[in-house]
Nucleic acid binder design. Structure first.
Lengths: 297, 297
DNA sequence: TAGATTGTTAATCGATTAACAATC
DNA sequence: TAGATTGTTAATCGATTAACAATC
């Protein structure tokens, strides 16, 4: 049975869709896995303040989620709480860390050492979570030989030997999009089985390789969508009857529009502070902060 | 009716959970909104190659999603295809751009100009999507006066005047976590209603303000979870009968473990290349690349 | 007309949530 | 014991997907 190639095993980012791989590994839902890091961060903060126990209500508030959801999430891990009392902070930190695989050492290579590669190399949240930067790699001779976060930037030629000798199983791609697939192929060939992709490209990988994607521009676009809704009902609405006309007519209309000037970009609407409290249903995301800075300010 | 404060209006990141705000704005599901940028990117790439039409099957492959899902997603926007033919690329680019609000200009401020702030300022994907960096702000006198991406770094003191005079409604926070809430408060007070948060903190905002969160460390943790599963059934399993013992006993056991050495960190398991093809269900995420590089390599 | 492909339906699946019995 | 809080159930909701009638 040949190793099939499939576009993207997993995914991430914005809301980033929802249910992916069943993650039957002991049956923990993917949505729960994605929240474990949030709980862990909140718990670590409590631990540092020497708080001994915490209730689901308190912890849920700190992590920005609903307490029923938190209890349900924890129930997949086991019965780690005490009725009438709550959860032992240290114990839960340990259990979640173990579940996430953070009680072991994960050497990571970062490929593409531009600003973002630098930012990631300096990101304190890595080391504190069991991740260790095994190497920084770049193809540009002007970058190779330099350093970031105290580590030397090495040439792409060393990729295979580093991955193999250091047993690297996680690779981070921060190259331009044109280089990403090629870098990905080399990482996979060398033995990497998990990839965090910052390049705006869909990566194709063999079965058994996980890809997660972070796309900065997508996040902003999703914000823009909601922002647009706040500022009145689409004030720059350019729609015309043509938009509902039969295909060929519409297509011609679209071409006319484009020929007439870009993609209809207009001023306006950033009438900021549209303070209408859109009664959008809330729902938490995010975690509580104990991690080192993303980067020095 | 006072403006209530609620933790995080929206969210993002890992898989980042799933259904959030109903986004009843014309009834487009949040999961669909999150995929529109992916389709847009794939379509833009086709447009640049002057491809006139595309079928749902082709476009879905390029965007890394299932074609039924894509057609369902498009059905929320309207009937923009032609049966037996497919979709007109230019027309669809226009419609999705309009739906996302990208046919207007969105001035953005970036607060916290470290490596990540620099990376974002240089991120080409912004300008090409209707986003314009109105200002770069930092609190550090050593950073203020410098420049990034050809723009001067200005002092935090100017935040309010810039937001107001330039009608900025979107703010990006790339500060250390300790400063994030304070920066967020000032942005909101000045009139910003959408925030993209890179600091590992849960931000509290009033109703009507959207927050999306990108957490680099969370992505890696989710990868580690799956990576751990690949390398055999939890090889460094430290669990003992104590883990199922009653609360107080377990708590004591946890403390013993911690006292005995960190959080149980162990070597091993990065037995890389665990080439078992875990038969995980696939599901696409990510988009096709036409965006400028995340950063220069 | 015949072939192709959309748009929609309906079934399925997974995630969220309130509520409450179990139990500390 | 009384109060508190977990862990689980069951209902609800939203997202995914295959299948196919509509229609170009």
């Amino acid at each position: 049975m040949a190793i099939g190639r499939s576009p993207q095993s997993s995914s991430q980012t914005p809301d980033q869709g929802a249910a992916r791989r069943p993650s039957r590994a002991r049956g923990i839902p993917e949505a729960t896995v994605a929240r474990l890091p949030l709980y862990l961060r909140a718990l670590t903060a409590l631990s540092e303040r020497s708080v001994p126990t915490v209730s689901s209500e308190e912890l849920a508030a700190a992590a920005g989620v609903n307490s029923a959801k938190l209890r349900k999430d924890f129930s997949y891990l086991g019965s780690y709480g005490t009725r009438g009392v709550g959860y032992d902070v240290e114990y839960l930190v340990y259990q979640i860390s173990r579940e996430l695989g953070l009680t072991q050492d994960w050497p990571v290579v970062i490929v593409g050492i531009g600003n973002l590669g630098h930012a990631l190399a300096n990101y304190g949240g890595f080391a504190s979570r069991g991740f260790r930067v095994a190497a920084l790699l770049d193809a540009d001779p002007n970058v190779v030989g330099g350093s970031a976060a105290g580590l030397p930037v090495r040439h792409m030629d060393e990729l295979e030997s580093i991955v193999e000798s250091q047993h690297v199983s996680i690779g981070v791609i921060t190259t331009p999009p044109g280089a990403a697939q090629q870098v990905c192929d080399r990482l996979v060939e060398a033995g990497v089985t998990s990839i965090l992709n910052f390049a705006p490209t869909v990566l194709t990988v063999p079965d058994g390789v996980d890809v997660r994607k972070v796309d900065l521009s997508i996040e902003l676009q999703i914000l823009a969508f909601h922002e647009q809704r706040k500022a009145g009902e689409e004030p720059d609405r350019t729609e015309s009857v043509l938009d509902r006309a039969p295909g060929p007519v519409r297509a011609a209309a679209a071409k006319l529009r484009r020929a007439a000037g870009g993609n209809g970009k207009g001023r306006g609407t950033a009438e900021t502070a549209a303070k209408d409290q859109a009664e959008q249903g809330k729902s938490g995301k995010g975690g509580d902060g104990d991690l080192p800075a993303v980067m020095p300010a």
